[in-house]
Design a binder for these strands. Sequence first.
DNA 1: TCTGGGGTCCTAGGACCC
DNA 2: TCTGGGGTCCTAGGACCC
Length: 423
Amino acid sequence: MKQKEVFALVDCNSFYCSCERVFQPQYNKRPIIVLSNNDGCAVARTDEAKALGIEMGAPYFKIKDICKKNNVLVFSSNYTLYGDMSRRVMTLLSEFTPELEVYSIDEAFLSLKGFNRNLTDYGIEIKSTIKQQTGIPVSVGLASTKVLAKMANKMAKKGAFKSVGVLSLESESQIDELLGQFPVEDLWGIGRKSAEKLKSLNIRTARHLRDANELMIQKVLTIQGRRIVKELKGESCIDLQLSDPDKKQIISSRSFGRSVLSLHEIQESVANHISTAAEKLRRQNSLCKTLMVFIHTNRFKNTPQYYNSGIINLTTGTSITNKLIKSSFQILDSIYKEGFEYKKCGVMLADLYPQTHSQTDLFGLHDTTNEELQMEVLDKINLYHGKGTLKFAACGVNQFWKMLSEMKSPCYTTRWSDLLSIR
DNA sequence: TCTGGGGTCCTAGGACCC
DNA sequence: TCTGGGGTCCTAGGACCC
């Protein structure tokens, strides 16, 4: 007989805020929010901030007053810090199971199949280890499928389970009861649109969905919806993904810190995006055959709007930054129009495929060994001395278009000069 | 003044072929 | 005058996730 699956979903509580708190423990009871890029909206909130009514994704300019009035600590995002803290948490988690899926920067699924342990106790052990060794509080949900583990995790964060922060779904009757209380729109994989469709069918709770006709659900929500129904019944059909597969596309894009009018400044920004994306491309040893560039104005502003994008199909795949910058400028020339206030631009590398080193090209357009070596040196220098240490002149120096990040904390863990000193 | 960024999967429908 | 139908491949767009 097939062994029963057991999944644990470990999720860091208010992750970005918790990272900030680790280094400023005096903030422990204070409301904190962390803003998205460009100090745009709130993307992480502590419980104290949630209690003030600050919604996820709320634009900062709309909540500034509440923040001031209530002494909310506001941070710009510091991805270097969060990435490093995430790595520490994931490394610790990997000691609790041989089968770990790092699902996002602040979440991981663990397979505990065949573990002969009390699952709640094991969850508590995981939680306290992470807290003790990194300072990050986590919640743990355990169940026989990923969808149920996600649900358990959500419930572990509130109500009666909150004080423990760990919830293991084991008995049928308990699962049935909790499914009956769980709103269908809070399920993993059910977004706004799907929730609307389900509600029009009078399916309001996870229990309603579990008991619905699978074929009917598949018609309404595609095969993914049917999978959710099966998982709610305890039939595991979303497997653990142990290694992360190569990306199929790589995007780099960002809003400007202010409106940008000149082609020159957009070129600088695009050159930077290409540099970032191409470095990622080389890191997974791939080449790209399609390059897309887009620019647009601020859709929230009452000014003339313009959006355009262009694509170049590269005859031979490449990962050489300067070649890609050249092509991106060709695209820009064809899509840029004078007289608009631009707010955002970006690039996408698509049609990625693994570099094999064996292919030759009839016209000799493929990347030469010399070019590849140059990129290798570039990547090594930037890895060691920090991003952007060595860059192409096209990326510019002043970068007036750069995003706002006015409330960023120091890089406590990754920069020597920012290390905490104890006096 | 100020509204994020990066990614995947699935499906419908068009193009094309026989 | 008769005006098919099935298959594959590709792409754009929708929906979802964090």
